Simulated scan of single mutants.
Amino acid sequence: MLQRWRREGRRLVMTTAYDAVTARIADSVVDITLVGDSVGNVCLGFDNTLPVSMAMMNHHLEAVARTRPRTLLVADMPFLSFHLGIEETIRNAGGFLQRGAAAVKLEGGAKRIEIVRALVDCEIPVMGHLGLTPQSVNVMGGFKVQGRSADDALRLLDDAYRLQEAGCFALVLEGIPAELAARATETLEIPTIGIGAGSGCSGQVLVFHDVLGLTRVHRPKFVRAYTDGFQLLQDALSHWAADVRSGAFPRSQESYRLPEALAEPIANWAPPSVKA
């Protein structure tokens, strides 16, 4: 389906969802919903994605899957879920599909070819992820733009082609020069989804909370917030708190009423006598 949309010139839209609320909001708008390991940064208070476990990912995937989204539902393979052997990788990825995901996403290039082939052989669709791969933050020395040297750029193009040949149905390209992402896109048959990779990709992904301005931490250069959701929600909550403190909430229409027949018995009720 994604390949057909690419051939038709349709730009793909992907965002993240971590619970039923965000999933329902996104479902009527985007093409692909990603239950990302970015839940660690966005919702769980971690500095990066490395502490996110399979148990955490399963918990959030199940919440999203219960909404029965119409979008393509992809789940991120977290750190160490695909590093300790093919059998465990298949078990973890297969568990995602059993919980409602339609595909999995994993980070890395040439080192992941054997893993991708094994997953595809087990009928598990795989989305690749190249460039700035957050699970490699320590090796990269931080969240830095990738592919700026000749060797790194050519390696990324090689990795993109090899992942396609191994069976990936799409690739996320993150934090790389726009020209490099465009070159990868034009040479691949599968679609690319960019994040901090310029406009030459087949589609774009941003974190749900970043698009809606719900975060108050430093936003990367490639993020565009379309509203100040944090301030809007804080203002609404402050308005409600003020109404509670002034007695303006709740009103009669926000309260339940006692049946008229019970008015007299309730009014005449007295505490029972307490026996010694």
Rank of each mutant, 00 (worst) to 15 (best):
V13C: 04
D19F: 02
R155H: 08
A184S: 09
P177Y: 06
K221G: 11
P78N: 09
L154H: 10
G9P: 00
E165K: 14
G213R: 12
E88G: 05
I193M: 03
D47P: 07
R66E: 15
I190E: 01
T67W: 10
P51I: 02
K111S: 07
N138Q: 13
E189W: 14
D158P: 02
G175Q: 03
V274P: 05
I195L: 07
V145P: 12
Y18I: 07
A267V: 09
A225Y: 03
L237R: 12
F96T: 01
A63H: 07
G147W: 00
L232C: 10
L73F: 15
D27V: 03
Q164R: 10
Q253C: 13
A110P: 11
E114P: 13
G108S: 09
V172C: 03
V120W: 08
V116Q: 05
P125L: 09
T133V: 15
A166H: 04
R99K: 13
M127I: 11
C168V: 05
I115W: 01
L258K: 04
P220E: 07
A118T: 08
D235L: 12
P191L: 08
E8W: 06
A248V: 14
R66G: 14
E165R: 15
R219L: 12
S53L: 07
C168H: 01
L232H: 04
E179W: 09
V172S: 01
L2K: 00
H129N: 07
K144Y: 03
T33D: 05
D76W: 05
V120L: 08
